[in-house]
Design a protein around this nucleic acid. Structure first.
Lengths: 124, 124
DNA sequence: TTATTTAATTTGAATAATTCTAATTAAGAA
DNA sequence: TTCTTAATTAGAATTATTCAAATTAAATAA
């Protein structure tokens, strides 16, 4: 008998922080924000929840090499990392349908690194 | 006066292990292999060298979320990760010229996740 | 050639990221 | 309302990565 996902206060706070968040926060940033409202929450709980939410496709995991970041927007899109300001930008999907040999494709993401418009204007 | 890169025995062993290697080893795998020939080498040295080689574009860093892997093939190509056998495959570049707004593009890489042909045949 | 100088490199130690597991708890069943 | 149990929590452990003091390759001077 499969139990449904439990609705814990920790999970609610994490979701509340992420909803509509365009900043692509890291696990630590989520932890830091949630901790303000729930001082006893543990970093492991934040990790566990972020992992579960990613598995459930409630959020998306972004991996630019330094550390994982999280995006509550699960619509089809890719990401751009600015090496000057370190911000992550949402960008339209570079390639919608990808295939290779007879391999079964489950998901794909394109990571772009460069300098954003703001930083170019400031003299990047 | 800019000094040139130094030619240390540690660096040579790391390069020797990587050259022609199609297995996309992790930093630990490189360390483990090099340690067999140089028992006193430190993990930090392997890290430092892999980072420097990546900066020099002598090798390429691959980031599928679990941990960093390294690829001595720096020609234009993307990567596929098989969720069954955990192998990383080289695949042709999904998209050669990428652009977005006026952003300056420095590099881009597409990561594909799925099931490889071998694993499908075995009943994936 | 050999000694001196110095910045690149090395490495043990420190820090940061992530996972593990025993204890706790939300919610379905009695 | 109480009992039961699998999902969740969180401190501890592990794994990944970086730091900084000591070492060393190689450029330059003697």
């Amino acid at each position: 008998m499969k139990r449904k996902q439990r609705n814990t206060p920790q999970r609610s706070e994490i979701l509340k922080y992420l909803e509509g968040n365009k900043n692509h926060p890291s696990a630590y940033e989520v932890y830091y924000a949630v901790k303000k409202r729930m001082p006893n929450v543990s970093f492991a709980t934040v990790y566990n929840n972020l992992k579960k939410m990613t598995d459930n496709k409630e959020i998306m995991e972004i991996n630019f090499g330094d550390k994982k970041r999280f995006d509550p927007d699960t619509s089809l899109h890719d990401h751009f990392f600015c090496v000057k300001c370190s911000r992550v930008f949402d960008i339209p999907k570079v390639m919608k349908n990808v295939s290779y040999k007879n391999f079964k494709i489950l998901s794909h993401m394109t990571y772009i690194t460069g300098v954003c418009e703001d930083c170019i204007k400031k003299g990047g």
